[in-house]
């Protein structure tokens, strides 16, 4: 999923990758494309993790892991960092999801469980401001419940914000009419994806899906 998503990261783009699988997108961006990574805690030009023993505990990413600064990097405070986000200056962000609705609503910060400690971080700001919002997620939950649904039941992160979804089964765009299949994973049929989706899929893939 991260590998497929990386193909859509264009040369010259400013990109924010969410914690977890989205972070892995960076490793697969095709050679020859120069991409500048933003981490919302305050850096453009984020590089890979440091060699063991060479890191600085004050040079970290949004997941609080040590990273490096690429040549040409810049540090800035949080108001500037979120001006980049909310002000529409970032081209792409890639996030995980609990649910996505056919209108592009995203739920990814809380299951609404009464005993959970609510925590949102920068997710609501990212989806409100970044030009293109990609989601990487398994197509269904561990229990086989669809994560792509007509209407989210978990608390929302943003309304009508998701542009494209990369799952283990397909690449799906959120268009005016709903979920449109762009591409199926090898050996996967449109019907089997439809069975595992909680909303109607629109065929439309260039690969015959």
């Amino acid at each position: 999923m991260a590998q497929r998503c990386a193909l859509d990261i264009q040369n010259g783009s400013y990109v924010n990758l969410g914690i977890g699988i989205p972070e892995r997108v960076a490793a697969y961006v095709p050679q020859g494309r120069e991409v500048i990574y933003h981490t919302e805690n305050g850096m453009l030009g984020m590089g890979p993790p440091p060699e063991p023993g060479t890191g600085d505990p004050e040079l970290i990413n949004a997941g609080k892991q040590q990273v490096t600064a690429n040549p040409g990097a810049a540090y800035f405070h949080h108001a500037d960092s979120f001006a980049m986000i909310r002000g529409g200056h970032l081209d792409v962000c890639v996030l995980g999801a609990l649910q996505v609705s056919e209108r592009g609503d995203l739920a990814n910060w809380s299951t609404g469980a009464p005993d959970a400690i609510p925590a949102v971080g920068g997710a609501m700001d990212l989806v409100a401001g970044v030009k293109t919002v990609y989601v990487i997620t398994q197509h269904t939950t561990r229990d086989g419940e669809p994560k792509l649904v007509e209407s989210c039941t978990f608390p929302l992160t943003g309304l009508g914000v998701v542009d494209r979804i990369y799952t283990d089964l397909a690449v799906i765009d959120v268009v005016e009419a709903g979920f449109q299949v762009v591409e199926l994973s090898p050996g996967v049929s449109f019907e089997s994806v439809q069975e595992r989706t909680g909303a109607k899929l629109i065929p439309g893939g260039t690969d015959g899906s």
Binding site: H77, H78, S81, F82, R86, M124, G129, G158
Partner: peptide, 30 residues
């Protein structure tokens, strides 16, 4: 609980003498 960017901007605004502002973040959410 405050979204991270809203938290940052609320602090910036407070320091800049701005009592309130409008933001698109968290519209339609709890």
């Amino acid at each position: 609980l405050v979204p991270q960017g809203t938290l940052a901007e609320r602090i910036r605004a407070g320091g800049a003498g701005i009592p309130a502002f409008y933001t698109p973040t968290a519209v339609g959410t709890p």
